[in-house]
Simulated assay, not measured.
Amino acid sequence: MKANHLIRGEQAERLACRHLQAEGLRLLERNYRTKQGEIDLVMQDGNSLVFVEVRYRKSDIFGSAAESITAAKRAKLIAAANHYLLRQADRPSRFDVVAISGDQSPGIEWIRNAFDAF
């Protein structure tokens, strides 16, 4: 049986994916894993690859979902994205964050170009 935090994380990723697809992005991969780290969603927006980090917080008492992304987490995402890009044709890419907060009617914040790595 999965722990509650893993179940909530999967639910948040599905919600984020549906939100981005409704905005016109196309899902390429979920949970792309490397030794360096994991990318929650790899999507396509026009000709661009979009590496999406999904963050969920039940409440903002200890900071928002977006604020929970540390420098170490960014470094892992960048390393995993570089690994992904090794097997792709040269094309533009960016990092987006989907921050979800609340349980009953969650708020969704889509932050495009959340950090500039390339």
Rank of each mutant, 00 (worst) to 15 (best):
I61K: 06
L20C: 10
A71G: 05
M43S: 06
L28H: 13
I39F: 06
L20A: 06
V98D: 01
K58D: 08
Q11R: 12
N31Y: 02
A12G: 13
V98Y: 00
K76Q: 12
D116M: 14
G37C: 10
F95M: 02
S101D: 00
N82W: 03
H83N: 07
N4S: 05
D45Y: 09
R87Y: 04
A65T: 11
A117M: 03
L41N: 04
K73Q: 11
P92I: 04
A81R: 11
S105T: 15
G9D: 02
A117R: 07
E29K: 15
A114L: 06
S68Q: 08
A89W: 01
L15K: 14
I111Q: 03
A80D: 01
K58Q: 13
L77Q: 08
G24K: 12
N82H: 08
H83M: 04
F118T: 11
L77S: 04
D40I: 15
R87P: 00
L49T: 11
F62G: 00
F51A: 12
V98A: 00
G46S: 06
H83F: 00
D116N: 11
D103W: 08
Q88M: 11
E109Y: 01
N113Y: 01
E53V: 15
G46L: 10
A99I: 02
D116G: 02
R57G: 05
R30V: 10
E13L: 11
M43T: 09
D103A: 14
F118N: 04
F118Y: 07
V52Q: 02
A72W: 05
A117G: 03
L86T: 08
R91C: 06
V52P: 06
E67T: 11
F95A: 04
H19S: 13
N4E: 04
K2L: 13
L85N: 08
G24R: 10
K35Q: 11
L27V: 14
G107N: 15
A3M: 07
E29C: 11
R112C: 09
A22L: 14
R57T: 13
V97S: 00
F62P: 00
R87H: 05
I108N: 04
R87S: 06
D90M: 10
G24V: 14
P106I: 09
E53K: 14
F51H: 07
A79C: 05
S105R: 15
W110P: 07
L15H: 08
I61P: 00
V98E: 01
R74L: 03
